[in-house]
């Protein structure tokens, strides 16, 4: 559905995107992750045809975005960051206008508008002027407009921006349901959200791809040895607990985190957080240290992201 091959973009002397390549197929939700200025939005804008790549090629549904721009754009539904809409128009009027732009046959227009409104749950707002809607509803109107013509590729730039937790959950469910018939490419800063929504993650920084894979693959490959066990012990015995924990083979480090008057949280870093739990329990019992909870945490996507960025910055500095 989407094929990005060795794409570069120069803004004058600034090399913003440096040889980005990836592909995505129908039924897949791909997350584009990266810090500000990484080249995410530039990459998305090249795919959507806002501007062409300086070098390289992008195909959408088999159509080159440079040689067949209209056919490529027809296959894309795009929700730009912050969902720019016409505030003076009604929701219904705006969706009808978008249907006209994509030349949706008049026989299908009503059905598709109804379907889009239903999928993003904006029925009660359809007669309202867009300018009077909340940020969450405006985002949903933008999503309805993007999906209206049933594109094969949906591109969502920061779709969860400005939404509250309940709205983010709804947005996630909508995106997952849309991916049943389309390929979804989304960019986001909310790493936990990407982990929950995306089948695949492409991490980009300084205009290059640092990693591409499923969240599980990325954790496996890039965050091995970064797992941890979180232990709550009695505050009076915190120092003894730290000594006892450091003595366990496989423990890379122990840090003191938050706590209250009675209990303190210790974070034990280990190459094998799940396997070391029993040894931690035994050590605490042997030293007669009161323990309230003990939990192994798998490395998160955030840790993968942070590690890759640190590596990238170190390499860039070198």
């Amino acid at each position: 559905m989407l094929d990005v091959r060795d794409v570069h973009k120069w803004y004058g002397s600034v090399h913003a995107v440096r040889g980005v390549s990836f592909a995505a197929r129908r039924g897949e939700v791909v997350g584009l992750l990266g810090p500000n200025g990484a080249g995410k939005s530039t990459t998305i804008r090249m795919i959507t045809g806002v501007f062409p790549p300086s070098r390289g090629a992008i195909d959408v549904d088999g159509h080159s975005t440079v040689d067949e721009p209209e056919a490529a754009r027809r296959a894309i539904g795009y929700l730009p960051e912050s969902a720019p809409l016409y505030p003076e128009m009604s929701v219904d009027g705006y969706l009808a206008f978008r249907a006209s732009l994509f030349e949706v046959p008049s026989g299908d227009r009503k059905r598709l508008i109804e379907r889009a409104i239903e999928r993003v749950a904006i029925g009660p707002m359809r007669a309202r002027r867009i300018g009077t809607l909340s940020k969450g509803y405006r985002q949903r109107v933008g999503l309805a407009a993007a999906m209206l013509h049933e594109p094969g590729l949906l591109i969502l730039d920061e779709p969860a921006n400005g939404l509250d937790p309940a709205q983010i959950r709804q947005m996630r469910e909508t995106i997952r349901s849309l991916a049943q018939n389309a390929c979804v490419l989304l960019s986001s800063h909310i790493l936990g959200e990407v982990e929950l929504t995306c089948d695949r993650v492409v991490i980009i920084a300084n205009g290059t791809i640092l990693a591409d894979g499923t969240p599980a693959d990325l954790r496996e490959k890039h965050a091995a040895g970064r797992g941890r066990v979180v232990v709550e012990v009695g505050r009076a015995d915190a120092a003894n607990a730290e000594v006892a924990l450091r003595a366990i083979p496989g423990v890379a480090g122990v840090q003191t985190a938050a706590g209250d008057a009675e209990w303190v949280t210790l974070v034990v870093e280990s190459t094998d957080p799940a396997g070391i739990r029993a040894a931690i329990g035994q050590a605490l019992v042997r030293a007669a240290i009161p323990c309230r909870s003990l939990q192994a945490e798998a490395p998160s996507l955030e840790q993968v992201f942070t590690k890759l960025l640190e590596q990238s910055r170190t390499e860039a500095a070198a």
Binding site: T48, G49, V50, P69, E70, A71, R73, R74, I76, Y78, P80, S82, P84, L85, Y86, R98, L101, F102, E103, G142, A145
Partner: peptide, 14 residues
């Protein structure tokens, strides 16, 4: 100014 040009120029319109 408002950014609505982006959805407009990314639709299949000359």
């Amino acid at each position: 100014r408002s950014g609505t040009i982006e959805p407009l120029i990314t639709s299949p319109v000359r």
